[in-house]
Amino acid sequence: MIRSDVLKALIPVISDHFTVCNIGLPSQEMHMMDDQPTNFYMLGTMGLSSSIGLGLALAQKQKVISIDGDGSVLTNFGTLPTIANNVADNFILLIIDNGSYGSTGDQPTYAGQKTSLAAVASACGCENVVECQAEDAVETMKAALASDKMTIIVCKCESGNIPVPVITMDPVVIRDRFMTEMAKRNA
């Protein structure tokens, strides 16, 4: 399974929750397969999906899932200690780890070599870290959602991409649609 297969399998489970979709293909794939107000698409700013998701989770009560990548987490490694030390039990960080910078042409990352992101997250102090294979992503996500505990999921999958259109929505429209839905659910 490649990232788009993992997302496709996860959509029935995560569709009703707020997601922060990482820059590039993860956002484009979520936009193509399940566009809706609860999706926040990052059009730029590599690395900050987990930080935005943490800020969202700390600010309100709805569950927030950051859909991140191995390359992006490597770019913003400082996020893991911050997450570990600021526990938000409505936050799930899903790192789809295909061992490559998928959006830029599948250049290998260190996460696909010697570096274990799950081990790093644990060493940073994150308490519920689960590494799973792509085939188990749905069950792992269901368990994390049911636990009501902040969870870091490192989902290992194969690298590879499907053709997807770029997102042409205006950023302020993405943001306003997302915030309106969030305010509605928190009302």
């Binding site: 922060v20 900050l48 930080s51 935005i52 943490l54 800020g55 700390l58 913003n76 997302f178 305010a183």
Partner: peptide
């Protein structure tokens, strides 16, 4: 990034 998330969370 954290501030952006907090803002969107109200």
């Amino acid at each position: 990034g954290i501030c952006a998330g907090a803002f969107m969370g109200g």
